[in-house]
Design a protein around this nucleic acid. Structure first.
Length: 423
RNA sequence: GGAGGGAUGGCUGAGUGGCUUAAAGCACCUCUUUGCUAAAGAGACGUACUGGUUAUACUGGUACCGAGGGUUCGAAUCCCUCUCCCUCCA
């Protein structure tokens, strides 16, 4: 969310950012117009309320001295009617403004490269040469089915398309990966959190998923709950509505959770395998930091995620997302992409984003840099560290052998009772 | 499943229709005084929006006492619905 006060003063940065994102540049002007209207209505409303308050006080005085106040009361009664109408109009104006305001994406950082899509993302660095198998690479789902560790047909029976059953070593690998990733993240200073997997509307709104992206979420009929699409949601909301002491920053948080995504706009994409499912597990990284450190913290978060891929010995590259490909909440995003031999391409495994004060403002999360000073919005960052499903797929593909068996990355062997190969 | 109690500022907690943005205490901040790991005294001290001025300071106004509605000239206070917490019973 944006600060309306500074927007009024200078909407330039947001308008430019909107253009760079290929977004609707008119929305900003619409918002400003509506805000103007809103403020004028608010001023009128405040005036009338003041009138009512003073009149009511006077009535109280009259009554205390035992005088008749009926004429005055009648007048205020009428005022009340006018107020009611005005209040209703205010409310709809308010709602309209909120929808616009909450629907505008974050302002891009100047360092974000110009571009329309992912094709314009900027190469930053890679881990070196990609895997040379020496035989024709099989796709991860083919390997998984052959080893009887992935079962798509029975998953379809249980739930439908875009689900998977993991079995035997497949299930164990998932558990091993989760433990490994959490242990590593803990060592690098992140506090492990096990949050609710369902959250309410306020939480989803503060995070940025609502009101704009409701179609991407799974709702829960029982109440106005939503299944989390990522642990980023509960983690960035942990301190929502609070004013934190400066000593509480920075917060480094990590959580292992299932994630649920409707994938509404992804029809036909990645229909095979476990790259894009309605349900997948992920270990997430979230940071809540002081504003002046946030871009430096982003670089450190990328390094934390890279460290995991390095330990797993998976070839990867780091890309800086272009303006057109940077997500709604983010001011700047790095993608980590892992090599998939069967596709002969790098595929995204981790998006590390600096969301600046965008989410903190939506959730009214603040802190006091100095005990007697003003309150300030901290910056939030998030990144995967790492997604279990895609990492598992990458392991199957990069560690596959000609005979169909799959070697286990060294760092995971201890988590799997010392097993080195599954066949 | 049944019965009851509760939700107030950073924290504890008073407040059943106007004198309440809200007592008191603690914490934090400033100042004063004495000074050995600190004590005493004084003062200031909520958030958001908005006007006086572009910003800070100051100051006017409005809203906010779990959330949303209602009653009333006037609501933290009365009524209704919901959420959450606690106690007891099953």
């Amino acid at each position: 969310m944006h600060d309306l006060k500074s927007l009024r003063l200078d909407a330039g940065p947001l308008i430019q950012s909107q253009q760079r994102r290929q977004g609707d540049p008119l929305a900003v002007q619409q918002l400003l117009d509506l805000d103007q209207e809103h403020r004028e209505a608010q001023a009128r409303l405040d005036e009338l309320r003041q009138e009512r308050n003073t009149a009511s006080k006077a009535i109280g005085e009259l009554k205390k001295s035992g005088q008749d106040a009926e004429p005055q009361m009648e007048a205020v009664r009428e005022l009340g009617q006018t107020l009611k109408i005005l209040e209703e109009r205010m409310q709809s104006c308010d709602e309209e403004r909120e929808v616009l305001l909450f629907g505008l994406p974050n302002i891009l950082d100047p360092s974000v490269p110009e571009g329309k899509s992912e094709d314009d993302n900027l190469f930053v660095r890679d881990s070196g040469p990609v895997t040379e198998l020496g035989f024709e690479a099989k796709a991860h789902d083919e390997i998984g089915v052959a080893l009887d560790i992935l079962d798509f047909e029975r998953a379809a029976k249980l739930a439908g398309a875009r689900f998977v059953v993991k079995k035997g070593w497949g299930a164990k690998l998932e558990r091993a990966l989760a433990s490994f990733l959490l242990d590593q993240n803990s060592q690098r200073g992140y506090t492990e959190i096990s949050p609710p997997l369902m959250v309410n509307r306020e939480t989803m709104t503060a995070n940025g998923n609502l009101p704009k992206f409701e179609d991407d979420l799974f709702g829960v009929n029982f109440r106005d709950f939503f299944l989390i699409p990522t642990a980023e949601v509960p983690l960035t909301n942990l301190y929502r509505g609070e004013i934190l002491d400066a000593e509480m920053l920075p917060q480094y948080l990590t959580a292992y959770t299932p994630c649920f995504r409707a994938e509404a706009g992804a029809a036909g994409r990645d229909t095979r395998g476990i790259i894009r499912l309605h349900q997948f597990s992920k270990v997430e990284l979230v940071k809540i930091v002081e504003p002046e450190n946030s871009f430096n913290e982003l670089e450190k978060m990328v390094a934390d995620a890279e460290h995991l891929l390095t330990l797993l010995e998976l070839p990867y590259r780091v890309m800086l997302l272009s303006s057109g490909d940077t997500g709604f909440n983010a001011a700047k995003t790095y993608d980590l992409e892992v090599w998939f031999p069967s596709q002969a391409k790098y595929r995204e495994v981790s998006s590390c984003s600096n969301c600046t004060d965008f989410q903190a403002r939506r959730g009214m999360m603040r802190y006091k840099p100095e005990a007697s000073g003003p309150t300030v919005y901290p910056h939030t960052l998030n990144g995967s560290g790492l997604p279990i499903g895609r990492t598992l797929a990458a392991i199957l593909e990069n560690y596959q052998q000609a005979d169909g068996s799959v070697r286990i990355p060294k760092v995971l062997q201890a988590y799997l009772g010392g097993v080195e190969i599954i066949s």
